[in-house]
Design a protein around this nucleic acid. Structure first.
Lengths: 285, 285
DNA sequence: CGCGAAACGATCACAGTCAATCACGAAACG
DNA sequence: CGTTTCGTGATTGACTGTGATCGTTTCGCG
C-alpha cells in the first residue's frame, strides 16, 4: 500500500509522516478541485492523493450517490457542468456522512406526493434530495431554495413558484424581511421541511431569519410533513419554529430514538420510519 | 500532505502542457465558444483543443444529439430553440445571429454601473450578456431572470434579489399576477431592460404578462436604461410598455437607423452608440 | 456547368478506462 | 484474543474514446 508511494517518491518516503490520506480528506480534496476546475480526472487524483485508482473510483461512486458530482468517462464533473456551485446545497462534513439516511428519508417522503398536488419544499439538504425524487411528478411546487428550483426546472415537469426576497449565496435560500409576498396567494396541500434539530419543545432552527421564513410558509398549508434523518434528534440550536403538535407527519429512519417516536405519536404525529437498508416503509402505526 | 505538494508540481506541469483535453473539457470549451461567438469551426477547435478532427466531429455529433448545438458545414452554430434551459436564455435564430452586437451593447451598458449601485436587470438575452460583464462589480441587483440570477450568484460578488412568482421554464422568467411583492421595497438607482422592439410609440413587448411585469418594475426606479441591438428597431409586437419619453438612456449599436436616433434625442433620451467593431463608445451627444 | 479543395461519415487498431472480483491488513467489536 | 467489518490494492475481461485512413459528399470558384 504505502510501499508503493515510497517507491514512487523516494525523497518523501520518510515514514515519519503518515502519508496515507483518509477517506474524508480525499473527498474534500476531490470536491475542492471540482469546484475550482469543474472537472477532475481519476489519473490526476491518483497523483494528488496517492491512493489507487480503485479507491478513487469508489470515492467518486460514493460522491455521485451523494449528489456531489457526476461521473463521466475518465473522471467526474461538477453537477452543473462547472457552471454554478449552487446546484447542491453546501454540505459540511457531518452532512456528508448521512447521505444514505437522507436519501432514504427523501425517497420515503417523495412517496407522499401525487400528481396535481400543490406542495411547499422548504430549503434543506434532505428536501433537495427529495426534489431529485420528483422528476416524474407533475405538481406545483413552492420553494425558497434556489438549488431546488434549479433541479426542478431543469429535470422535471413540475411548475415552480418562488417567493420574493434576497438570494443568499452560501445557503442558496431566498429570504425576505417583508410580509407582503406572492406566497400569500399560494395554498399548498402539503409542506415538506427539514430543520436544524427536533426536540420535545418543537422544531428548532439556528438562524432567526430562516426560522421566520419557515414560520411564514407554515401559514400556507395545513399538513406539515417533517423530513429528518435520525441524527437530527440530537438537540441543537435555539429558535423554536413550531411545536411538535403542529406536525402532521414525520418521516425519518429507523435510527430515531424510540422515546422521541413515542412522544411524537402521543402528540398525534404520524411517524413513518424508513429502513435505510431496505429503503422501504416499515411501519406507520 | 507535503507528499501531495511534491506531486502537485508535477501535476500542474502536466496540466499546463497541452497534454490532452478530456471529452468533457472539450465539450465545455465548445459550448463556451458557441455561447460567446454563436458559431464554431472544426478547424478552429483543432487548434484550441489539440484533438483530432475526427474526435471533434464526434464531439459535435454528440452535442447535437444532446440538443446543445446545431451542426453546419464546417462546424456548428448555437441551437435555435435553446435546449439548455437555464445556462443561457433561449435564443431564437434571429437572436443567435446578433450575438456580437448584443455583447457589444451589453459591455457598453455595463460601463454605466458602479460599485454600490442598486440596479434592476430585466430578463432578456442582452441583459444576460450584461450580467456576464458584472463579475467584478459589487452591487445590489434585482432581477426577474433566473439565468441572470444564476450567473450573478455563481460568478460575482453582487447581492441578488428576486421577485416572487412562478418560474417559467422556457424563458427563465419569474412572473407574478399579484401586486404585493417584495420588489415594492426595492429602490433602484437604474433599471436596465431590453424589449421585443422599439417604435415611435414606445417600448414594445409581445407577451402581456411580460409587459405587465416590466411595467411593475418601472415603478421602482427613475432612470430607465434601454439596451437593444439595432435590429430591435424593426417594429414587432403589440404591447406598449411605456412611451419613449420615459427612457432616460438608450444604449444600442451604430447600426441603429439615424431617423430613430434623432427622434429619441428629440424626446430627451440620451442615446449611446456602440461600434461593435471597436467595442467603444462613439458618441453620447 | 464543371472542377478542385475542403469537409464528411465509416471503419479499424490502439490505448485508456471501467466494473467486478479476490486478497490483504487495520480497526472495531464482543 | 478471535471474529467481523471496513477500507484498500491488484487483477481480469469488457468497454469507450481516440487517431489515422478510406471513399464519398458538399461547398466555392471560374
Amino acid at each position: 500500500m504505502r510501499h508503493c508511494d515510497c517507491l514512487l517518491t523516494d525523497m518523501s518516503d520518510s515514514d515519519s509522516l503518515p502519508v496515507m490520506m483518509h477517506e474524508r480528506e480525499r473527498w474534500q480534496l476531490i470536491l475542492t478541485r471540482l469546484r475550482d476546475r469543474g472537472i477532475v480526472r481519476v489519473a490526476d487524483l491518483v497523483g494528488v492523493t496517492g491512493a489507487s485508482v480503485a479507491t478513487l473510483r469508489r470515492d467518486l461512486a460514493k460522491l455521485e450517490d451523494a449528489g456531489q458530482l457526476r461521473r463521466v468517462h475518465g473522471g467526474a464533473e461538477s453537477v452543473a457542468s462547472g457552471q454554478t456551485p449552487l446546484t447542491a446545497p453546501s454540505f459540511d462534513a457531518s452532512q456528508t456522512l448521512n447521505v444514505d439516511l437522507k436519501q432514504a428519508v427523501a425517497r420515503g417522503a417523495a412517496n407522499l406526493c401525487q400528481d396535481g398536488d400543490s406542495i411547499i419544499l422548504n430549503a434543506g439538504s434532505t428536501t433537495w434530495f427529495m426534489a431529485q425524487c420528483l422528476r416524474q411528478h407533475r405538481m406545483q411546487v413552492l420553494t425558497n431554495s434556489f438549488p431546488i428550483a434549479q433541479e426542478l426546472i431543469a429535470h422535471s415537469a413540475n411548475r415552480v413558484v418562488l417567493p420574493g426576497g434576497e438570494l443568499y449565496r452560501e445557503a442558496g435560500i431566498i429570504l425576505s424581511p417583508f410580509d407582503e409576498d406572492a406566497i400569500q396567494h399560494f395554498a399548498a396541500s402539503k409542506m415538506f421541511m427539514s430543520c436544524y434539530s427536533i426536540t420535545p419543545l418543537g422544531l428548532i432552527e439556528s438562524d432567526p431569519l430562516v426560522a421566520r421564513a419557515e414560520a411564514k410558509l407554515l401559514n400556507r398549508t395545513e399538513k406539515l410533513i417533517v423530513v429528518v434523518d435520525s441524527t437530527k434528534f440530537e438537540p441543537q440550536g435555539n429558535m423554536v419554529v413550531c411545536p411538535l403538535a403542529r406536525v402532521t407527519t414525520l418521516v425519518t429512519d429507523t435510527g430515531a430514538p424510540q422515546q422521541m417516536v413515542d412522544h411524537l405519536r402521543q402528540q398525534g404525529v404520524e411517524v413513518i420510519l424508513i429502513d435505510p437498508k431496505e429503503a422501504k416503509v416499515l411501519t406507520a402505526a
